[in-house]
C-alpha cells in the first residue's frame, strides 16, 4: 500500500502564497538495475504528479528514472478560495494514488 505525507496549510489568507510539500512512498525502480538473478529489474517509476485546486491544475510534473525513491515534491501556489486540493501520482504499472487535503481561505 502506498503512503503519502502531505503538508498543506489548513488555513490561509486570501492571496497568500502557500507552500505545499508532498512525500510519496514509491520504490522508483529505474529499469537499469539488475536483480540477484542477473536480469534487469523492470522499470517502475511514478511517471506523473498532478495537483488540482478546486478542479484547476495548479502544479504538475513529469518524473524520470533519475529521481530517488520516495519522491519529495514541494511547490507554491496562491490561496484563492476554500476548497479541496487533490494530489495524484501515476506510476508505470498504471496505478494512481489519490490523496486529498482541505484548505480554508479567509
Amino acid at each position: 500500500m502506498a503512503r503519502a505525507l502531505l503538508n498543506v496549510p489548513a488555513k490561509a489568507k486570501r492571496g497568500d502564497i502557500i507552500e505545499i510539500k508532498t512525500l510519496m512512498s514509491h520504490p522508483m525502480e529505474t529499469g537499469f538495475r539488475t536483480g540477484a538473478d542477473g536480469k534487469l529489474v523492470p522499470r517502475d517509476i511514478i511517471k506523473s504528479f498532478v495537483c488540482t485546486y478546486n478542479g484547476e491544475v495548479v502544479f504538475s510534473a513529469d518524473l524520470f528514472p533519475a529521481i530517488s525513491a520516495n519522491p519529495f515534491i514541494a511547490f507554491t501556489t496562491v490561496a484563492t478560495e476554500s476548497g479541496t486540493m487533490i494530489f495524484s501520482w501515476t506510476d508505470d504499472k498504471g496505478q494512481t494514488q489519490v490523496q486529498t487535503a482541505p484548505i480554508s481561505v479567509e
Binding site: 503512503r3 505525507l5 502531505l6 503538508n7 520516495n70
Partner: peptide
C-alpha cells in the same frame, strides 16, 4: 521535519 522525513512513511506502515 516529520513531513519530509521518509522514515515517517515507515512509521505509518508500522502503525497499521
Amino acid at each position: 521535519d516529520d513531513l519530509a522525513n521518509p522514515g515517517m512513511l515507515s512509521v505509518l506502515d508500522g502503525e497499521s
